[in-house]
Design a protein around this nucleic acid. Structure first.
Lengths: 219, 219
DNA sequence: TGTGACAAAATTGGTGACAATCCAGGCCAT
DNA sequence: ATGGCCTGGATTGTCACCAATTTTGTCACA
């Protein structure tokens, strides 16, 4: 796929929205950065109209902020709101963990334990990117096993908004050592088919994430 | 000076979106009903472009479903998804109830108890609309006292999607008799500043709502 | 009576042009 | 210097128009 100019395939508004979402998640677009419609249209090879509707979508999703006649910017989520988001995620991911514990099959349990072993190895080898991957896999798998699509969509949307804080966090030295036992506790409870315990472990984990976020902003 | 009609004020896309949202909530627009852009533009005195972007917003919010070249309809939420929505709401409203129990002031507690008394009176008098109002007031006040704006926004969006089932439910005879004690239990726990109890009471209440929804669809 | 092909109508999708608005910077009076 | 005011350029907001697509209606024919 060509990076912009001459694409025979038409670039739809949904495509543009997806590209911008990715760019924000990857940190290529930082909070408060202006999003000039003409520039984006040029960059992605789309018409300005499509860029416009894409920005509308992202505004509803909470990733972008628009001011009348002044254009769009990447929304900057204040610390206070990020903490709220983590609280909401805690409630929802606890729900998913509990449902996952009720529904998990033996094969899925084995897969989950494998993720846990990979995370232990990553901490032992001090491989941060492997640990981050394990983290994503774990949360993703619990959500998938839970079968809660509404919760999943909500969690995704919220996580995208708070992506800036996720970065700061995983860059922090020693963070993985602290969170590893929390993750393993979640895995254990889910594999033991203990919904209440799984929910509790997940809530404790996200409470710790919340604390870590507060500390990471004291710089 | 827009198209003909005498609205001196211009009707923006956000206005149109708000009107359609209301119409869906009020049941004026029913699930699967087609939303023809030209008709809506005529009805609300807006340009077709504005209607178009409004429909885009509502699609992202999950109220409207769009198919390429075939137009927009009011999205029909299947029973299974409505139950998921109630589960997510249970998790979030439990969070709000717990936080409200931690933060409530004496005056707010008195206000909350007044809502409870009004609901008791409504059941005694068999005044369904008064009971429904108390219900709305109660949930709304807990969310407000909790100070959780992220959770509040999420709950609102989800509730709008499942509005069809709310209707069926409150129209059901005897429903208020069953739910009154649940509501009173929530109020008691919050006023007693018992976060854990408030969350539990709220979860139990919404579990009962979930059951009632299932029963109400067996017709 | 049912069915397929075809034309006509209705509706949505996309683009370009133009109007409205905001912002930066220079200019002048104080 | 300081502050108000104006002008030019950049950017967004809106609309009208046309193309593309789907849906509906009609009619011949088995």
């Amino acid at each position: 796929m060509a990076t912009g100019t001459r694409t025979g395939t038409t670039v739809t508004a949904a495509d543009v929205a997806a590209r911008i979402r990715e760019a924000i998640s990857a940190g290529d677009l930082v909070p408060n950065q202006r999003l000039v419609e003409a520039d984006l249209a040029e960059a992605y090879g789309a018409s300005r109209g499509h860029v416009r509707t894409a920005l509308g979508e992202l505004t509803v999703e909470g990733l972008v902020e628009r001011i009348q006649n002044r254009g769009a910017r990447v929304r900057s989520v204040p610390l206070e709101e990020a903490l709220e988001i983590v609280e909401v995620r805690a409630a929802l991911e606890a729900l998913c963990a509990a449902r996952a514990a009720e529904r998990i099959t033996d094969e899925q349990a084995e897969e989950l334990r494998a993720i846990g072993r990979a995370m232990e190895a990553a901490v032992r080898d001090r491989d941060q990117s492997a640990y981050a991957r394990g983290n994503t896999d774990l949360h993703g798998m619990l959500i998938r096993v839970s079968g809660q699509r509404t919760a999943a969509a909500t969690i995704d949307r919220l996580r995208a908004q708070a992506v800036r804080f996720q970065y700061r966090l995983s860059a922090r030295p020693g963070r993985s050592q602290q969170s590893l036992p929390e993750h393993l506790a979640i895995i254990e409870a889910v594999c033991a088919r203990d919904p209440e315990g799984a929910a509790r472990a997940m809530r404790e984990h996200l409470a710790s994430v919340s604390e870590a976020i507060v500390e990471s902003t004291r710089d």
